[in-house]
Amino acid sequence: MRTIHRTLAAGLIAAAALAGAALPAQAHDTGEPHEPAVPIAAQNKLIAEVRAATARFHDVDVAIAAGYVPVGECVEGPDGSMGHHFMNPALIQPGAPVDPAKPPLLTYGPSPSGELRLWSAEFFEPDVGQPVPMFGSQPFDGPMPGHEPGMPVHYDLHVWIGAHNPAGIFTPFNPALHC
Results as ranks from 00 to 15, higher is better:
D99V: 05
K45F: 10
Q43T: 15
S113G: 10
H178K: 00
E76S: 13
P36Y: 14
L106G: 07
T7W: 00
G67R: 04
P131K: 06
D99W: 09
G150K: 01
T3K: 01
Q43K: 03
H178Q: 02
A65K: 07
P39W: 06
V69M: 02
F170Q: 09
A37D: 10
A90W: 06
D141H: 15
E76V: 11
G67C: 05
P97S: 09
P103G: 10
G31C: 14
G77C: 08
Q130P: 12
I169Q: 06
H85A: 09
P172R: 13
W119Q: 01
M82G: 04
V69W: 06
T30G: 13
L118V: 02
G83I: 10
G95C: 04
G31L: 13
F86G: 04
E32N: 10
A96Y: 14
A121R: 11
V62C: 08
I47D: 08
A121L: 07
V128Y: 02
A41H: 09
L46F: 04
G67D: 00
G109K: 12
V38G: 01
A42P: 08
A176Q: 04
T54R: 00
C179V: 03
A25C: 05
P104G: 07
P89Q: 02
I92F: 11
L8R: 11
F135H: 14
R117C: 00
I64T: 10
G142F: 04
P100D: 15
V69Y: 06
G142T: 09
M144S: 12
E115C: 03
P143L: 12
E115N: 08
Y108P: 05
L12E: 11
V38K: 03
L23V: 08
V60D: 05
P97D: 14
S111Y: 10
A163H: 03
E115A: 03
I47F: 01
G146F: 12
P172A: 14
Y108D: 01
A16Y: 03
E49G: 14
F140E: 13
Y155C: 07
G129Q: 00
H84I: 01
L18G: 14
T30W: 15
R56H: 05
E148A: 08
E32L: 15
W160L: 00
Q26V: 12
G77R: 08
V159N: 01
G129S: 05
H28I: 00
E148P: 02
V50F: 11
A48E: 06
P94H: 05
I64D: 01
E125S: 13
G114R: 00
A21D: 13
S81V: 03
P103C: 07
L23N: 01
L105D: 00
R56D: 02
K45R: 15
A19K: 04
V98I: 15
P24C: 06
N174D: 03
H158K: 07
L157G: 00
L12P: 01
H164D: 00
A25R: 13
A19V: 10
A52Q: 10
R117I: 04
H164W: 09
V153M: 13
I169H: 10
M87S: 04
R51Q: 13
R51D: 08
G146Y: 02
G83D: 09
T107Y: 15
